[in-house]
């Protein structure tokens, strides 16, 4: 279980990294925290000719804030988000999610951008960013483009990132002080990838009412009808709608899996409802 031979380069700037990636025939792959790619290299499931290690590019660690939104650099680690290395504008959601990712040893090295780029449907950030309505900032030879997080996954382990592109940052809306969120995942054991994820975000001031089912074996699913019901009739009603909506939009999944997704979503809504009554 040792990797096949590969070259290793460590660019110091974004243009340098882009240049290294631009030659598609070079079969280069971006390396950040290595928490998914490392095992895949060892199992020889990933066989890049060249690893481009982007951890020394300072620009990819930037946090930028304006009135309504903020952006976080792609190579910030889960642990940095967990520990509050930068100010939190998510009313605690991002640190909460970070704390539940794998184990601390993984969080110390794994990066938010790396996890998103890896596009594992069961990964926490994939669901969280889609639920919150984040935007992926993608850098490539043709310059910069933006992709809504909810559309970022094409399928399991496939994203809209091109072979020569690189995720540089994630832009998120700032949640107001009145925002409520619920995040629930079904895991068989601590640190394991989730069997089902439910996310609810409600911020009336910002007009956000979003309910999402994640770890669906593909792109996470925004539950539009549940979100509408949340906005108009509240979390308890939305919980009833969510189960029905999941049955409708994910008919291809095993009944047991749909059941777990419904429970995860309902429990994320329940958290909102509990917070409301406090």
């Amino acid at each position: 279980m040792k990797p096949a031979p590969f070259d290793y380069v460590r660019p110091r700037s974004l243009p340098e990294a882009t240049a290294l990636l631009s030659d598609e025939s070079a079969n280069a792959k971006i390396f950040a925290g290595g928490q998914s790619l490392g095992p895949m290299l060892n199992l020889r499931l990933a066989r890049p000719a060249k690893l481009v290690d982007i951890r020394n590019i300072q620009a990819l660690r930037a946090v930028r804030v304006d009135e309504k939104s903020y952006s976080i650099g792609a190579t910030l680690t889960h642990a940095e988000i967990e520990d509050g290395a930068f100010e939190d504008f998510s009313q605690g959601l991002l640190p909460f999610v970070a704390r539940g990712i794998a184990y601390r040893a993984v969080r110390n090295r794994g990066t938010v951008g790396g996890s998103l780029s890896h596009a594992d449907p069961a990964a926490d950030w994939v669901s969280t960013m889609a639920a919150i309505g984040a935007t992926m900032v993608v850098h490539g030879p043709a310059g910069e483009r933006r992709v809504p997080a909810e559309q970022f996954l094409v399928g399991a382990f496939t994203s809209k990132l091109g072979a020569t592109e690189l995720l540089t940052a994630i832009e998120l809306p700032r949640l107001s002080a009145t925002a409520r969120w619920g995040y629930y995942k079904v895991c068989r054991k601590t640190g394991e990838f989730a069997k089902a994820i439910g996310v609810t975000i409600q911020d009336p001031r910002a007009g956000i009412f979003r309910v999402l089912a994640g770890s669906t074996e593909g792109r996470p699913v925004l539950l539009a009808r549940s979100g509408e019901t949340l906005a108009t009739q509240g979390a308890d009603r939305a919980a009833g709608v969510a189960r029905q909506e999941i049955e409708e939009v994910l008919p291809h999944l095993e009944p047991g899996h749909r059941q777990q997704l419904a429970v995860a979503v309902q429990r994320s809504l329940q958290k909102i409802s509990l917070l409301e009554t406090v």
Partner: peptide
């Protein structure tokens, strides 16, 4: 006794 088996038993 995995979650799947328990759910299946209940179902």
């Amino acid at each position: 006794a995995s979650p799947e088996r328990i759910l299946a038993a209940i179902a």
